[in-house]
Amino acid sequence: MTRAPDRSDILCIGSVLWDVIGRSASHMEKGADVPGRILRLPGGVALNIAMTLARFGLRPALLSAVGRDPEGEELVAACAALGLETAHLYRSDDLPTDRYMAVEGANGLIAAIADAHSLEAAGAKILRPLADGSLAAPDAPYAGLVALDGNLTLTLLEDIAHGETFRAADLRIAPASPGKAERLLPFVRAGRGTLYVNLEEAGILCQTRFATTEAAAEALIARGALRVLVTDGARPTCDGASDGLVLREPPKVLVTRVTGAGDTFMAAHVAAERAGADRGAALERALAAAAAYVSGDTPS
């Protein structure tokens, strides 16, 4: 008999940290020094997805590593206030709370550094609730939705892709960044889960460059991926699977921010499909949510 997390609709596994984002309305090049705003916000791929899911009326449970330092205590309190289940977080006395720093200009993301060393150091400890009966057990695997990000180590992602812990789960996987896109290769090879990637990340996974999301989706499916959603900014997004491709155009909006847009797209898509939307309708709802986010019409 399978078990589901108490009071939760989906597990969000991966980075839960503080985002420090500098934003300017100016066009920026290397070495630019311009006026703007610097914000500190709860962030990380798994947390961004969870926060968006909560806005759609779901209650996500977080599986991640958060320190017991003041920053960690503040972050956990902020997550709880947003309606997220934090009881299953791995809380370390020795590891500091992770951070992400980015600079955005009118021309998009200029640079970013992700410090997820504590999450990587914690490793498989963050998955203990799936083995000790808290959320699931070896003889009763978790059978619900799981949003997973590529900030986990390659070894742990390999175990998730090929192991038994998630054999009954509906896996939804994001790479976290182009620099970590290759960490999704185990899921391509195993034919497990739904991958959410942009055109650059799709190219990294296939070791080539693609002109369109349609071509990228076809190539990933040919390499063994079960299902992929490939985005390319304001250009058409493709949902690819063995039974065909679905293409949709994103709404045209004025972009005011970019960090977290992909996470918003993924969360909105998961929520739409959970509510029963077909592939075309789910894609349209996800693109609308991402457009509202980048235009500044939804909260950070």
Rank of each mutant, 00 (worst) to 15 (best):
L185R: 14
G105K: 11
G150V: 08
P141A: 08
I113K: 13
L109F: 05
A114T: 14
R128M: 04
E73I: 01
L157K: 03
G179Y: 13
L84V: 07
E73W: 03
D93C: 03
H88K: 09
E73R: 04
P70F: 02
P129A: 14
L185A: 15
R128C: 05
D94K: 07
D98G: 05
A81T: 13
T153G: 15
P96I: 07
P96R: 03
R68G: 10
Y90K: 01
D115N: 11
G163A: 06
L184V: 05
G108R: 06
A161K: 02
D170I: 05
L152I: 09
A121N: 08
A131Y: 08
G144V: 01
E104M: 05
T153E: 12
L135G: 04
L127H: 05
A106K: 15
A174Y: 02
L89R: 09
H117D: 11
S177P: 03
D132G: 10
E164S: 11
A176I: 01
D69P: 06
P178G: 15
R172M: 00
L82Y: 11
A78E: 11
E85N: 13
A176C: 03
A121Q: 14
L95Y: 03
E104Y: 10
K125S: 13
D98Q: 00
E85Q: 15
T165Q: 06
I110C: 15
L95K: 01
A137G: 14
P96V: 08
E158A: 09
C79L: 09
T153S: 15
V146N: 02
V76W: 03
E158T: 13
T86M: 03
A136R: 06
S92Y: 09
R91G: 02
M101D: 01
L82I: 03
L130R: 04
L156E: 05
E74S: 13
A114Q: 08
H117S: 09
A114K: 01
A116D: 09
D69S: 08
V103S: 12
P141L: 01
P186E: 05
D69F: 08
D94E: 12
G133C: 12
N151T: 12
G108Q: 13
A147T: 08
E182Y: 11
D159L: 01
D93V: 01
D139C: 07
R172T: 02
I126C: 02
A106E: 13
H162K: 10
D149C: 00
G144L: 03
D94G: 01
H162V: 04
T153Y: 06
A124M: 14
I113F: 06
L95D: 04
L84H: 10
D170Q: 05
E74T: 07
S177C: 12
E120C: 14
D170P: 00
